[in-house]
Amino acid sequence: MADGTAPRKLIFKILRYNPKVPGDRPRLQSYQLEEADGMTLFIALNEIRDKQDGSLAFDFVCRAGICGSCAMMIDGRPGLACRTLTKSLGAEITLAPLPVFELIADLSVDTGKWMRGMSERLETWVHLKEGEVDLRRIEERMDPDLAEEIFELDRCIECGCCVAGCGTARMREDFVGAVGLNKIARFRLDPRDTRSDEDFYELVGDDNGVFGCMSLLGCHDVCPKQLPLQTQIAFLRRKMVSQGMK
């Protein structure tokens, strides 16, 4: 290693299961790998697949912590594998797929389907005012601070860590998760969206929405983008309570 010490021998215990293989059963499989400087789980898993086991399934895309593809359970905690350095972990590393989401195989889960379903339900897009925007004209002005506030919430990468870390999501199949609630908070802020609190109440004013949250706030702790989920959920709940009282 860089400091002259001998590299560690890492043991990876990886949850293996390919539902497409008849008779396959979930099991932990061990792989041994010599640690290298700057090794991330992206580097380690690819080395295992290239040199030891071509059938190991996992998902990486950007490998830079911005696309949200590679969320998995790392020693029992949801996180982005691509930016997790092995040196931050012990010599024995346990990897498992995110819970809640449909399993594809091994460490690969279908977050895309879940997120699309959530987006369709919550209509996570700006509901424009009537009439087309004239693209030739100067854009509508927006306060620079407000643009930054919206961006702050718009930073969500839909990785699924918050859902995997959520108590309610384990119990309620249709719970929209912190990811969904954060999106509602984001569109509430956006003056371009014509929806009112009455409309948002229709979307999240129940136990599958903001009232399903038990305030365990695992979501807030595991969010790789440090989104302010705790304050946003609390704020949204207050707004929805007062809407519900109307």
Partner: peptide
């Protein structure tokens, strides 16, 4: 320029 303005209307929080 039309593309930036379209995206502004679609909700992109452009820095202002």
């Amino acid at each position: 320029p039309k593309a930036v303005r379209e995206l502004a209307a679609w909700g992109v929080p452009w820095s202002r």
